[in-house]
Design a protein around this nucleic acid. Structure first.
Lengths: 185, 185
DNA sequence: TACGAAATGTTAGAGACTAACATTCGCAGT
DNA sequence: ACTGCGAATGTTAGTCTCTAACATTTCGTA
């Protein structure tokens, strides 16, 4: 099970070690060397699996899911409604255990200036997909970029707030972001 | 004239050297040492004036202006209208020569992944001011954060696009961002 | 001119990241 | 089980960003 050879397993160990160490001591106080060591591996191996120190925490398997969900919406929907539907659908598919993992990651991110600043980079693919979905529905190039950026920013802000609370359903955070974009005027 | 002693002049030389070198060779290919050398100064002096390599390019004198302008809007205005009015007022006060400088900086930023990713950090103060302005008008804490993040993201995206074009008035870019936030639905 | 403070330089070092090369590990086919 | 090949990991050495502690210069002012 759990597709993949050794590489995938060390990757997982690196992520788990990183989140655990950073949750306890803060991202800036944990060196790549220590993360690697905690995962039973060398610093070099860390950099073979992740391009930067930030990426081991920011790397989110759900981002591509969102991109796909948005792109898959029927073209009959108006532009921003399609984006909203895609986001809802993607996050609805996240079960409780996975949501806990997401929350742990987001808490580490929320606690670090550097990580928060680096978030847009990791959501770039999703933003791109949203912009594409908008464009294919007749929205101008520039306007699509702007609307996508605003959507992702709202979603990110909502998720970071959500992560700091306890026992709030993940769906509420998504609805909150969508509600603001929908009713902005 | 031009308030301030030697320190301010050194700072200006560092910024000019950084923008010029990076415009020619790209941000990632220019070391702090070379920027300092081009400004006739040591690497150490660079770090006394700027906390990071990114900050010498990202440092924007207009960000605080925007924050002030938003905070100064009359409380009679509805929340997002106040933000829009503040943004318009702030950017209207930028003359053509200053706009050129802004454009040069933004072009360097647009060309670098790292700099684009670091932008939110440099606009954090502005986002904070916008969130505060919204809160003081009765918007919920979380909603204020989300709306502010979306506003700044839209504005940033519009400015980065604007910088890549020639002979477009700066005001148009601001209007474009505001228009999308205003009519998002 | 001499003084004090601001501005800059020097040195040393930790940590992020890269490149080139050497080694071990795991799975296919026999 | 054995072998062999490629994938995964280790080693070493180096560049670059950024910090700290201490020494030196520069500049306005008394």
């Amino acid at each position: 099970m759990s597709r993949g050879g050794k590489a995938q397993r060390t990757r997982d160990r690196l992520v788990r070690a990183a989140v655990e160490l950073c949750a306890g001591e803060g991202f800036e106080n944990v060196s790549v060397g220590r993360i690697a060591q905690a995962a039973g591996v060398t610093e070099m191996t860390f950099y073979r699996n992740f391009p930067t120190k930030e990426s081991v925490v920011l790397d989110d398997p759900f981002d591509p899911m969102i991109a796909d969900a948005v792109a898959a919406q029927p073209r009959s929907l108006p532009a921003l409604a399609a984006v909203a539907a895609g986001l809802r659908h993607a996050w609805a598919g996240v079960d409780d255990r996975a949501a806990e993992t997401v929350r742990d990651r987001l808490r580490v991110i929320a606690a670090s200036h550097r990580l928060r600043a680096a978030m847009p980079q990791s959501t770039a693919a999703t933003a791109q997909a949203i912009a594409d979905a908008l464009r294919s529905r007749g929205v101008t190039d520039v306007d699509a970029e702007i609307a996508a950026a605003a959507t992702i920013a709202a979603l990110t802000a909502a998720l970071l707030e959500w992560a700091q609370l306890d026992d709030q359903p993940l769906g509420d955070a998504v609805e909150r972001a969508l509600g603001i974009l929908d009713g902005a005027r």
